[in-house]
């Protein structure tokens, strides 16, 4: 079970630290775990892992296509590969290798695509994937995780270790998000988490937008508006039952994601609703635009990934009820 500790404060530990310490532990406790990176070990905090375990941590250089198919081969050889690079290079740069050598050939690899969406900040538009979930969702039997906080990140990294099928794509910032879960929280893959109950509307959020959704729900509660907040950290396979339940119980839904509204969480939820229990829906996210440089806060402002914009959309959605 998970315990929600959200109070608006930031996490103390950044996700780079979570990732590097978890990978070190996984490699040291399971002889089948191997790690690959594409010249971004310094960025992912895995330099120490590389130095300490050069026989099982491999720097592939700036060759993402080769890395992803090598990872498939390692999987085929009975190992449990994890591969990291920035989100755009972990998805669109090597999409065919992930699709064919990992997905189609059924050689599961655990992929960490770091700094999704606006988290790419000053690296700008070339490094800013608003489409990685869309790409990965389109791979049959793939799993897509959009990480809300470090507790969840570590749990997912450990959980997918023993996945015996399906591309496992995990997107997460390297920095800190709002703290959502108490340490030791347990989750279930493919199940969304109700973080806060409500009756008037449900916000289904993922990744960095989960904290914003909680903030919006708290703010609107003061006006007597009761918002349910769901952390849909498994974007694929989507928890369709929970989406339908929220539609039935609250009558209107707003999705919120650090991704293009095309192809991501919002579209997945929309499809589930239309096919099962149509209610009004508004998708909050990046509205079909490319990335650019800026601080995360400036970019959130530029793309409307803010509590203010989410509040606006929630009010708009409530009127459609």
């Amino acid at each position: 079970m998970y315990k929600v500790i959200y109070d608006g404060s930031r996490e103390k530990k950044d996700h780079k630290t979570v990732f590097s310490s978890t990978m070190m532990d996984l490699i040291e406790t399971d002889p089948d775990v191997v790690y690959l990176d594409a010249d971004l070990m310094n960025s992912s905090g895995t330099m120490a892992l590389w130095k300490k375990h050069p026989d099982r941590a491999f720097n592939c250089g700036i060759c993402e296509a080769n890395m992803m198919a090598v990872a498939a081969g390692l999987s085929l050889g009975g190992l449990k590969p994890y591969a990291h690079t920035f989100g755009p290079f972990a998805s669109r740069r090597c999409y065919d290798q992930v699709f064919i050598s990992q997905g189609y050939a059924d050689n599961p690899v655990r992929i960490y695509g770091s700094d999704p969406g606006v988290c790419a900040a000053f690296n700008g538009g070339t490094h800013m994937p608003f489409e990685d979930m869309a790409l990965m969702r389109a791979i049959p039997q793939a799993y897509v995780f959009d990480i809300a906080d470090g507790v969840q990140f570590e749990w997912v990294l450990r959980k997918v270790k023993d996945a015996d099928s399906g591309v496992q794509y995990i997107r997460s910032t390297r920095k800190n998000n709002a703290a959502i879960y108490a340490p030791g929280s347990e989750f279930e893959i493919g199940k969304g988490n109700i973080l806060r109950d409500g009756t008037d509307l449900t916000i289904i959020a993922s990744g960095i937008m989960v904290g914003d959704a909680m903030a919006v729900a708290e703010y609107l509660a003061k006006e007597g508006i009761s918002i349910r907040v769901v952390d849909m950290f498994t974007v694929k396979p989507l928890d369709v039952d929970l989406v339908v339940k929220c539609a039935q119980e609250t009558g209107v839904i707003v999705t919120s994601e650090n991704h293009n509204i095309i192809g991501g969480l919002g579209e997945a939820v929309a499809a589930a609703l239309v096919e099962n229990y149509p209610v009004p829906l508004i998708r909050h996210g990046v509205e079909d635009r490319f990335g650019q440089v800026g601080s995360v806060d400036e970019l959130r402002e530029a793309y409307g990934l803010t509590p203010e914009r989410l509040t606006e959309l929630v009010r708009k959605a409530l009127k459609r009820k």
Binding site: V34, M67, V70, A72, G73, L74, L76, G77, N107
Partner: peptide, 10 residues
């Protein structure tokens, strides 16, 4: 690439 991954696994 996959073949090299297999060889590395060996």
């Amino acid at each position: 690439s996959a073949g090299l991954g297999l060889a590395l696994a060996h």
